[in-house]
Design a protein around this nucleic acid. Structure first.
Lengths: 236, 236
DNA sequence: TGCATAACCTGCTGA
DNA sequence: TTCAGCAGGTTATGC
């Protein structure tokens, strides 16, 4: 049916998962007259374990949500913001019945300390409170496409030239063509050598590196742990 | 009948007072069949003013609560978390009738930074999440009585000898007779010089000082501010 | 009378 | 199991 990249709120203390309205109304329609209190949905994960979520509509926020049972799933699967949950429906043998499945995967692997990320910024190791879900971009789709075109990103200053600065998602960043930056570390090199193409490719000239901050110490802001109380000053 | 040390929620925006189940079922039994929606209880305070509270059972939280009318009482009496409300029943002259009374008092005055408290520990300036209301002991009743006998305290190791250690409320503490501790600070001295007797009294030999931690800096755990996110490592 | 706010009610989680 | 705490929805109330 559909996937959702979960937000910090989806896996946080609110104990609810917001179902995007278009998916909710298409795949889990609620009869407003008969199903006043929402309904219980039974899902099955790939291990065969059953998960029952209460599904309802919140008038206050005009949104569809999974509530009861959801937090257990988050804890059991150790979901973090940016991870992806996938809802699937399987039509059963009997025809009229269908089984619901839920699956999940960790968010796409990105450098742990993403001072440099080709083509996209992944703010998940930064302050979750300031992270915008729209910022999480699947590396598979960003090849050869300028960053500022993606995921609801709103660049205040769009500069496509290496060495220039731009402000993206409210964060000051430095841009450079892949292969021209000289201070990329081993870790960053190996990471961008993964799913992201590095210089020499046919489309390399339209990719950026985005530099977030300049700290290299192991004890800097980027390496601090903490679930929700962590805060950062990025390149101020 | 019973007292309750009110929690932040009891005097906050939830506009309800949770009645501990054992007291609720003993003193305010609800007939689940006839009184589906709870009942109205009339109390009288010491000024003769009448207070009517709705009293009911919440299935969702499995708890008994005073709801309607309670917030007016909180505001009128200026109740704060830690204050004590007292419910009393007086059998009337007619025999069959009984009058209900409600009384209240401010929480016992304790030192702001209670590193040393004679005869009792007052953890309320510490992390509220870990504080057990049973730990609040009225200073007036503790003279010459060993600490571990009071207020629902459960000492895992009971040691009545100065200099020995004990574990009370899950906290490791050091015990000493009053007057024998040498590193009591000025602040602590003046505090214990208040409502609590210090050495030289006729019963001083049976009183303790309880040492919580050993930090004296102004920047230590004990002086940190914060409503609910504070946590401690006590004498580990 | 209508709106904005407060009070009240319910459901849920986590310790 | 109890209950503190949070959040959201609904009802009452004052301007």
């Amino acid at each position: 049916m559909f996937d959702k990249v979960v937000t910090p709120s989806d896996v946080g203390k609110l104990n609810r998962l917001v179902i995007p309205k278009q998916h909710a109304e298409r795949y889990f329609p609620l009869d407003s007259s008969s199903n006043e209190k929402g309904l219980l949905l039974n899902f099955e994960d790939l291990t065969g374990k059953s998960w029952r979520f209460r599904y309802s509509y919140w008038n206050s926020s005009q949104s569809y949500v999974m509530t009861k049972g959801w937090s257990r799933f988050v804890k059991d699967k150790k979901l973090d913001a940016g991870d992806i949950v996938s809802f699937q429906r399987c039509v059963g043998d009997s025809g009229s019945n269908s089984r619901l499945f839920i699956d999940w995967r960790k968010r796409p692997k990105v450098p742990e300390h993403p001072h440099f990320v080709a083509g996209a910024m992944f703010p998940r190791s930064l302050d979750q409170r300031n992270a915008n879900p729209a910022m999480v971009v699947d590396p598979l789709v960003i090849e050869s496409v300028p960053v500022m075109m993606h995921g609801g990103a709103r660049a205040q200053t769009v500069v496509g030239t290496a060495g220039k600065r731009m402000r993206l998602f409210g964060v000051d960043m430095e841009c450079g063509e892949i292969g021209t930056m000289t201070n990329s570390t081993e870790e960053e090199s190996s990471s961008s050598g993964g799913s992201l193409p590095r210089g020499g490719g046919s489309s390399s000239s339209s990719l950026f590196q985005l530099r977030l901050g300049s700290s290299t110490s192991e004890d800097d802001h980027f390496t601090k742990k903490g679930k929700s109380s962590l805060s950062f000053d990025l390149d101020q």
